[in-house]
Amino acid sequence: MSTADAHDANRRDFLYIATGAVGAVGAASVAIPLIDQMNPSADVLALASIEVNLEPIEEGQSITVTWRGNPVIIRHRTAKEIEEAKATPVSDLPDGLARNANLAENAPATDENRVVDGKEQYLVQMGVCTHLGCVPIGNEGDYDGWFCPCHGSHYDSAGRIRKGPAPENLHVPQYTYVSDTQIKIG
């Protein structure tokens, strides 16, 4: 380039920057829809809540229902299971948080915080191992609770992780009692 066209060089610099800026904005506005289309679509997000009647569940029995494509485990716990869960000090737990969507995020993982007051026999929790998402099997494992067959996580009778690779207690979904025996999940 000759030294005479310094003026042109300035104009060219401006064009470079302006074109580059338009290009960057253009690339970003193309990238966003391309990436975001993979997020859950409107119909998946719109999945309604479900209602479950707890009455038919006998003591010591569990049922599994589907909510948002995932299993929810509802267990009618025995007195012994509740006793054991209460007797375990929170300091013994690998995960000290309740992981209960109905409580504050920092609520401690006491047995009380895993269930609803006065309905402590009914444990409602996601059947999704917090390790890599398998469905834990009931009445198995070393802690009278659940055992995940995939990589060997043991949960206790309050669904709290006790042993194995899973980092968190089984999550408790958002739910409310709509009547004495009927809950609404979601």
């Binding site: 997020n39 948002r68 995939c150």
Partner: peptide, 25 residues
Amino acid sequence: VITNLFSAVPFFGEPIVTWLWGGFS
């Protein structure tokens, strides 16, 4: 199980997995 491996990513784990699945499972 394999897609859930990405949930181990700190902070962004859950959103990444939801994005990979296009849903909650």
